[in-house]
Design a protein around this nucleic acid. Structure first.
Lengths: 216, 216
DNA sequence: CGCAATATTGATTCCGTTCAAGGGTGGTGG
DNA sequence: CCACCACCCTTGAACGGAATCAATATTGCG
């Protein structure tokens, strides 16, 4: 994201940023709060979610090393509309709003990079709206598993490089926790996935793709 | 959106743009196609939708006078990820990509304006994801009616300034057409709305708000 | 170790979809 | 002008996916 900067801009940025380590569970910012800058994820994983009136979370995105979060709130100068919480210990840098605005005004390529980032997220969000509105829970769960593999990759044994609770799964898919449990166990007995504790391994990607496209 | 421009930039823009009239049903651009610029809606109404694998549309936004569409595709230089179709006769101007990129590079305020626009849409999309994942069809329909009043306003008799088919309603709410029909007829017999052909009038906004917030 | 959070499984309920059949409306062309 | 056709709307009945409720396991952290 910051590769459009000149070396002078880079130096300036580095002198302004503040990095810190955060443990699992830590909330970086909350829905409704004001934030004075953006956060760059150095390492670790966060979930970005909105909270419904009954308290149930809806996860709308993840952030991992290299991602920037909080820019929506900064750019529109509005309170945050999501909550960002660490789910895997993370190192995060803070960049004050003024610095970001300064960069946008002075560096067209940086602006275009940011615009492309927001557009990509917008596209993903719209796709997700369509899926959640039209597909069954089974299809959506298959899709989420593929998305996770795509986003986080696998370790040497083929297990997904991310660990989520069943409830977190349900908060992505948009369903009840029990439904996630039942479907994962179906997938397992069909040999589509295997599990080791909370770790999940995709055994038959092709079949998952078929399911997610409703061609099963 | 273009108020950040200098008068010189304005003149340049006006010489580059091409305006045309389009009738209801006309498709301005289709999902998957390349588009070479953005469209500014002068008047009229369009629906922006994605098409599911079974052919069912999911409406993700509307565009009316003053709105800009197609910028996502232009900025990210990717094929359009939605289809834009006229639902009320419209006058639309076309602005080539180069002109937009030129403006972004030369005018920081214009960039920020565009960024704020995308951020607003992103926020709306995320809210919608939460709603569609957590609320009932009844709650969502109530919310959509309120959104339509907010976006398009009412005529002198209090009827919504937009006419949609039942199917289009179902394609926003994310449900079956029959469900929309049943629920609208429930709302009518509860005195929450009234109808005149396809025209709808909200009679009890407070109660609709209660329903949409699940406090009914 | 013990408690709290998480996971699992079963039984039951219900919201919403689907299928089917019929009625209404508007626009077009003879 | 009105008959016809395509499209849209409406209603009923039945089914089914997923939520909810309830009752244990199991895990893992302090």
């Amino acid at each position: 994201m910051f590769k459009a900067l000149t070396s002078e801009e880079h130096n300036h940025l580095n002198s302004d940023k503040v990095c810190e380590n955060y443990k699992r569970g830590k909330i970086i910012y909350s829905e409704g709060s004001r934030i004075a800058g953006v956060f760059c994820i150095n390492s670790g994983v966060l979930k970005i979610y909105k909270t419904g009136s009954d308290g149930k979370e809806q996860i709308v995105a993840f952030a991992k090393g290299g991602d920037i979060i909080g820019y929506r709130s900064v750019l529109s100068n509005e309170p945050a509309c999501t909550t960002a919480q660490v789910i895997e210990d993370a190192k995060i840098c803070f960049i004050p709003s003024e610095v970001i605005f300064q960069l946008i005004r002075s560096n067209g390529d940086f602006s275009i990079g940011l615009l492309q980032l927001t557009c990509r997220e917008l596209n993903q969000a719209n796709s997700f709206i369509k899926d959640i509105a039209q597909k069954s829970v089974r299809e959506r769960l298959a899709e989420v598993l593929l998305m996770l593999q795509d986003t986080f990759g696998c370790n040497s044994e083929g297990f997904l490089n991310i660990i989520l609770t069943r409830e977190e799964f349900s908060n992505i898919v948009g369903t009840a926790t029990e439904s996630v449990i039942r479907l994962l166990s179906d997938f397992k007995s069909d040999g589509i996935i295997s599990m080791n504790g909370k770790r999940i391994k995709i055994e038959d990607k092709n079949y998952l793709e078929k399911i997610s496209k409703s061609f099963n």
